[in-house]
Design a protein around this nucleic acid. Structure first.
Lengths: 150, 150
DNA sequence: TTTACTGCAAAGGGTTTGCATGAGG
DNA sequence: CCTCATGCAAACCCTTTGCAGTAAA
């Protein structure tokens, strides 16, 4: 959980011009753990900035990504934004479409990355490790639906 | 490299109605290793089917995905299609945007998957493991550009 | 014969762009 | 002050949808 001052410092360190809007957007995504969509960021920010438009959010997210602070995660319908730049595993629910970091597997992803660095001729910059499945809630709902007649 | 007959058998095994167009599309993606886009599939197929439209390709890819034969891989600009349903690592070049399977890491991904299955409360269905970086060609070009004056 | 696929056109919707105004460093 | 961010509207483009005709099983 970064404070506003820490956010300002991180932005200034990259010579990113700091505006109130950018600070709110940066806070909404960098202090999140749910891999928010642009719409979700919009909803979290417009209480304080009713006149802000999606164009500003897209623009700011591009700045944050080009400065290595976040990573865009394209999905079928829309992109989500990842503030955790460390190697890790994401759990993506096929039902409710929620995305969360897995508790386990970080070291395994680091080892896998080292192996790819050593055994491929690619210069690796970052990685995306997504496991798709059913969260407990959606798995239960799915069982219900499969039992009930069509 | 599946023969036409093997492709027909795989489709019929899923009770997918086989048409000449579907056979051509299935061959273009299932016998590929470059994770083609819809446009690339279109270009590979329209020699034999000049009247085919993108709508047919999208429709067929949806059928193949729902039957577990391929997996859609959303990227920023557009989706690519993955015929390799086994756990493995993809190498994605940030420069030329080519995508290829890594030679190494399959067993590591399987182990990681088992671990996530055991240590999370998700029912895992499949996974996407992408390493983003610079292929040898694009890494060389990037070095050139960084040396030359702006 | 029944079901559903193909091709064409149009619509959908997330994202990008152009521009005038306004604010940060 | 100069550069660049914001907000608004319009454009973009990948993808989906509706429908009439046609082919697979």
């Amino acid at each position: 959980m970064l404070t506003q001052q820490e956010l300002v410092d991180r932005l200034r360190a990259r010579t990113v011009r700091v505006t109130p809007q950018r600070l709110a957007i940066a806070e909404a995504v960098l202090n999140s753990t749910d891999h928010p969509t642009v719409q979700q960021i919009y909803e979290r920010v417009r209480n304080n900035f009713p006149s802000m438009t999606l164009a500003t959010i897209y623009s700011t997210l591009g700045v944050l990504e080009r400065n290595g602070l976040i990573q865009e995660l394209p999905f079928e319908r829309m992109s989500r934004y990842e503030p955790n730049m460390d190697p890790h595993v994401n759990l993506v629910c096929i039902g409710c479409e929620n995305v969360m970091d897995a508790d386990a597997g970080q070291e395994a992803v680091v080892r896998l990355k080292n192996r790819i660095v050593n055994e491929s001729d690619f210069q690796i910059a970052w990685q995306r490790v997504d496991f798709y499945g059913w969260c407990p809630n959606c798995a239960a709902e799915k069982r219900q639906q499969e039992l009930s007649p069509a």
